[in-house]
Design a protein around this nucleic acid. Sequence first.
DNA 1: CGAATAGTGTCTTTTAGACAGTATCCA
DNA 2: TGGATACTGTCTAAAAGACACTATTCG
Lengths: 232, 232
Amino acid sequence: MTKGQWEAPSVLLAVDLVILTLRHARLHVLLIERGVEPFKGALALPGGFLRDQDEAIEAAARRELSEEAGLVDVHLEMIGVYGKPDRDPRGRVVSVAYLAIAPRLPEPVAGTDAAGACWTPVEQILSAGMEVAFDHRQILVDGVERARAKLEHTTLATAFCGETFTISELQQVYEAVWGVQLDPRNFYRKVQSARGFIVTAGPMRRTENGRPARLFKAGPVQVLYPPMVRTV
Amino acid sequence: MTKGQWEAPSVLLAVDLVILTLRHARLHVLLIERGVEPFKGALALPGGFLRDQDEAIEAAARRELSEEAGLVDVHLEMIGVYGKPDRDPRGRVVSVAYLAIAPRLPEPVAGTDAAGACWTPVEQILSAGMEVAFDHRQILVDGVERARAKLEHTTLATAFCGETFTISELQQVYEAVWGVQLDPRNFYRKVQSARGFIVTAGPMRRTENGRPARLFKAGPVQVLYPPMVRTV
DNA sequence: CGAATAGTGTCTTTTAGACAGTATCCA
DNA sequence: TGGATACTGTCTAAAAGACACTATTCG
């Protein structure tokens, strides 16, 4: 509560992005090599400070998404706030973390500002002990866990795919993000019976090897029913 | 990214609390009558600014929880960040919202600072058009939705109960938060079969009317398997 | 005894999971 | 033709939902 002469302390506000995508059937996150202190030369999540007093937080996240990864119109949601008093040696910096999901991309990161942007397998950071700057490991852990959880009861998986996709492409998303193997036949039935999850995108087909598959696009529904249960 | 002479803008950081509890088998939220401008006299979620530059954000939330509601050791989790540039007429105020779950309480709000603290049925704000200050209606909506979702696949429901509770008390939590009626017999089976959800708390019993019920306490598990499915 | 709540059993329908078999492409 | 992937069908076991019934308390 504001009382009397006391003045509330102010903080610097930043945004950080966990940008996930699928590459070679594995989950990758975009990391940037830092060009300035602190943690100069180390890898970190893309992000930055609010540009000015009037910039909305999500707008800042979208701006960084565009500037650092060349991405527009992708799924974006807030993960949480990271504000431990000592998390940044420059002073009291509070960071709002966002989760972004990018569909399959051409090999290089298109339209990038930052020189050292690179897609890194999530496993390398989570299981192998690869280092990242600040508290970005924790932010990544929380972002990946958010994605895993939302695959269960929302249609988020379609955000990893392009405009249209086959059912086995969708299955690859679940397998990569959850780190499990799924039976394609049961996955088929499951996905088709989830109301509004996917809808057929014309009678077109696409091929690379074996029988061509039907194409689908994301359905109208956000919340999945029945959910895709990740058996524990 | 920090560049050259440019200086990042700073913001005021606040916390707001959605404190939920059950009263008379209905979901209630704690509101405070504001004693100062802006919105003087209006009802608002409890909350306030960070006390000083070194206070952790969650610590500020726990401090407000104690000062404004007299609550300690209750479930507390972050909901999200609310930072629209124009959400507070005093300037750029970014608020971190927290969800707190209080067990059944004695009628008055114990140990309260704020004079006008009152438990309000959530329905009155969500369905009936009761007004609240700032963007607190949206924060409440998000907090309640979070609670509803977490009841499905976590053991959060036990946080609404006291140290020990009966199965029908637990059922009341689900019914009040979800706003549905559940079959007590199937609920029984369901809850008992969810591994680690509840454990018997001795052979004691409690009574008020009808046959006495067994007492349980919260089990060791946080994530529910199988989940409590809220049929849509 | 009846009213009220606690707890068990049982039946039916739905869903998950395993897996056989057919279809359609390419080389 | 064989190899590969797409898709369909079928069986079994588990879980969800409906609901009859018994148990234990109070007054």
